[in-house]
């Protein structure tokens, strides 16, 4: 069987000790949360990390709470597992779209282990990378794997592996922010939308030594509505091959649009955000749904990076976006 090469492991007991350890280890260090993404990547050799910093003993990183001062604002500790989030009454009441999203991730066993911050920091995936040593050797490597060529965009100097996490699109649509400690600034808060950049080799904007401690989701006004739709080959287990989160900001009567956004996932290293302000004032009807679907299809510039026909994935993004609007109409 595949085994992880011998690897160093530390289990700090304070957040400061953890960020110090990560700072010291630099590019060789890896944050071990639930490990459901990291450990398989270490086994396959697609992740070259040499030391693990486990968060298991850190206090205060687990739990879900509604902010006492800002009603409706929810804070989720970085090490909270996906299963806990999916079944949490606060999340179910205030953030049903997030509960629904999390329930579509992987399998019950993986959700018992995987964490919210781990999902946000999921490594990018590509059909030329997430393969065995033999495959990558036969291929001659790529930008992300002991080579110098990109097989997705021939001639590209930039890795375009896809961000395949499910939570980022919906959290962006919800306007969520992440709290980060460590690094040169000592700590900061940034929008989930700003957590990603376009480099598939280093796709988060976290710097060395930085660690996410919590995700904070602001109260969703009653006139706003968020949903997430994911397409994968199977109804469970799989990563998305394309995904769409939709936020509709409506008038009080919920029949016409004041604004909103589409977030398309599983394209490149970063989710694509599409502002829907050009539809401001429009009736929310089948015609609008079809138009938003067309916008999604146009903006979903799929690449041959994930293991499925990009043309189909693009068409599918359009259908999913349209159906997201229709789902709102059916539920309003």
């Amino acid at each position: 069987m595949l085994r992880i090469r011998p690897i160093a492991h530390e289990r700090p007991s304070s957040v400061t000790a953890a960020t110090d350890a990560l700072q010291k280890l630099g590019e060789h260090g890896r944050v071990l949360g639930g490990g459901t993404d990291l450990l398989p990547n270490l086994k396959l050799g697609t992740d070259k990390g040499r030391a693990l910093v486990s968060l298991a003993a850190l206090p205060g990183l687990v739990g879900i709470a509604e902010d006492a001062e800002r009603a409706g604002t929810v804070r989720i500790g970085a090490m909270t597992t996906l299963d806990v989030i999916a079944n949490d009454p606060i999340v179910q009441r205030l953030l049903p779209s997030l509960a629904e999203t999390v329930r579509r991730i992987a399998s019950p066993q993986i959700r018992n282990q995987a964490t919210i911050a781990g999902n946000l920091c999921l490594d990018t995936r590509c059909r030329y990378i997430n393969q065995s040593d033999l495959f990558r050797e036969a291929l001659g490597g790529c930008l992300k794997s002991h080579g110098d060529a990109c097989h997705v965009v021939v001639g590209s100097q930039n890795c375009v592996a896809a961000l395949s996490c499910d939570t980022a699109p919906v959290l962006i649509a919800l306007g969520a922010r992440v709290h980060v400690v460590g690094g040169d600034d000592g700590g900061r808060t940034l929008a989930v939308a700003d957590l990603y950049c376009t480099d598939g080799l280093a796709h988060t904007t976290l710097t060395q030594g930085e660690l996410i401690t919590a995700v904070e989701i602001p109260a969703l006004p009653p006139t706003h509505w968020v949903t997430y739709r994911k397409w994968s080959r199977r109804k469970a287990i799989d990563f998305p091959l394309v995904s769409v989160a939709l936020r509709l900001d409506t008038c009080r009567e919920r029949d016409h649009l004041k604004g909103g956004m589409l977030v398309i996932g599983a394209l490149g290293p970063k989710p694509r955000i599409v502002d829907l302000k050009k539809f401001k004032g429009r009736d929310i009807d089948a015609a609008l749904a079809a138009e938003i679907g067309r916008v999604a299809e146009i903006r979903a510039k799929t690449l041959p990076n994930l293991p499925y026909d990009p043309a189909y994935r693009r068409r599918r993004a359009g259908v999913e976006a349209k159906r997201a609007v229709l789902a709102f109409m059916a539920n309003r």
């Binding site: 059909r127 997430n130 393969q131 495959f135 287990i237 293991p307």
Partner: peptide, 14 residues
Amino acid sequence: LLAGSSLLDYPIPT
């Protein structure tokens, strides 16, 4: 080259 040599890339129904 085999397109996918894992049970993730070779989906069997859940």
